[in-house]
Amino acid sequence: MSELLDFQDAFVSALGGSPLALSAWLASPEAGEAGLSVYRNTVAKGCVDALAANFPTVLSMVGEDWFRAAAALFAREAPPTHAALLDYGQDFPSWLERFPPAGDLPYLAGIAHLDRLWTEALFAAEAPPLPGDAFAALAPDVLAQARVSLHPSVRFAAFDAGLPSLWVAARAGAEDLELGDTPEGLLLARPGAAVTRRVVSPADIAFLAACRAGLSLAQAVGRAAEVQPEADVQTLFAALIADGVFGALNPGSP
């Protein structure tokens, strides 16, 4: 076991640019470099393929050639830290923000961020959503002081413009894409077998953020009203229950 661990450490060092680290296990340094080159190429292709699968909306917007060239550069700078590539690319959105060729597409990093949130929702822990009758059973004063936890799969993000609608349209394969200037949010959840998505208002985002922060439902309603005074919070709350975004309820004291 000790030698296996030593070999693994040496292999990682060799991939990082120190091929002589493997000399104890190789007939010649040339043999090691040739093998490492094949391995690097195989891993690089796997990384690019994984990024294409995990950021399909970005891919659809920039095209195959642009995406694969950018993905190869990212994979070189940020190689995977574990064998499974199903959720590879956590830092890809922030990397795109610093990637000069993406400067002409200022919304691209935001689109990548939403793709990433979709992946996170997909691989989040399984849990049953909280049914609506759990709320209906509480007296109004108790409900107001209650606190809710969000379902493990819930992801949301807010934007100053219509990026969520653009993301939804691109994800659905629309060809005529237009970025609106109305502030929007995107809500993702997987209360069942599939990830659901819904473009929501700033009030929804404020409500969800308050719940995630551990505030009471009354306080969450207040936060939503502050952000968007004209919002119908009762309808907003009912829609969130229908979305299956709540995971547990802690009743308050009247």
Rank of each mutant, 00 (worst) to 15 (best):
E3Q: 14
D9F: 05
D9E: 11
D9Y: 02
A10G: 14
F11T: 02
V12F: 04
S13P: 12
S13E: 15
S13L: 11
L15N: 02
L15C: 12
G17R: 06
S18C: 12
A21M: 08
L22R: 05
A24I: 07
A27M: 10
A27E: 12
A27R: 12
E30I: 10
A34I: 14
L36S: 09
L36C: 10
L36Y: 00
Y39S: 09
R40N: 07
N41V: 07
V43C: 08
A44Y: 03
K45V: 13
V48T: 11
D49K: 01
A50S: 11
A53N: 11
F55K: 02
V58D: 08
S60G: 14
M61V: 13
V62C: 09
G63L: 03
D65I: 12
D65E: 12
W66Y: 13
F67C: 05
A70R: 00
A72R: 14
F74S: 01
A75V: 09
E77A: 13
E77C: 10
A78T: 12
T81G: 07
T81V: 08
A83G: 12
A84Y: 05
A84V: 10
L85I: 03
L85F: 04
L85M: 08
L86P: 04
D87T: 15
Y88H: 03
G89L: 01
Q90G: 13
W95L: 03
R98D: 13
R98M: 10
A102H: 07
G103I: 04
G103M: 07
P106T: 00
P106K: 01
Y107F: 13
Y107D: 05
I111L: 15
H113M: 11
H113E: 11
R116V: 08
R116N: 06
T119P: 04
A121E: 05
F123G: 06
A125Y: 00
E126S: 15
L130K: 01
P131F: 02
G132F: 03
D133F: 04
D133L: 03
A136V: 13
A137E: 15
L138F: 05
A139K: 10
L143K: 07
A146T: 11
L150S: 03
L150T: 07
H151K: 05
V154Y: 01
R155A: 03
R155L: 04
A157S: 12
A157Y: 01
F159Q: 00
L163K: 04
L163R: 04
L166V: 00
L166G: 04
A169T: 02
R171A: 13
A172H: 09
A172V: 07
A174E: 15
E175C: 14
E175A: 14
D176Q: 15
E178Y: 05
T182H: 12
P183N: 01
E184I: 08
E184G: 07
L187G: 08
L188S: 06
P191S: 06
G192Y: 09
A193Y: 09
T196K: 04
T196L: 07
T196V: 11
R197W: 04
R198G: 10
V200D: 01
S201I: 05
S201N: 07
P202V: 01
P202D: 03
L208M: 06
C211E: 03
A218C: 11
V221F: 10
V221H: 13
R223Y: 00
R223D: 13
Q228K: 06
Q234K: 14
L236G: 05
A238P: 15
A238S: 15
L240A: 05
A242L: 09
A242Q: 15
A242C: 10
G244F: 01
V245R: 00
L249F: 07
G252W: 00
G252T: 02
P254F: 02
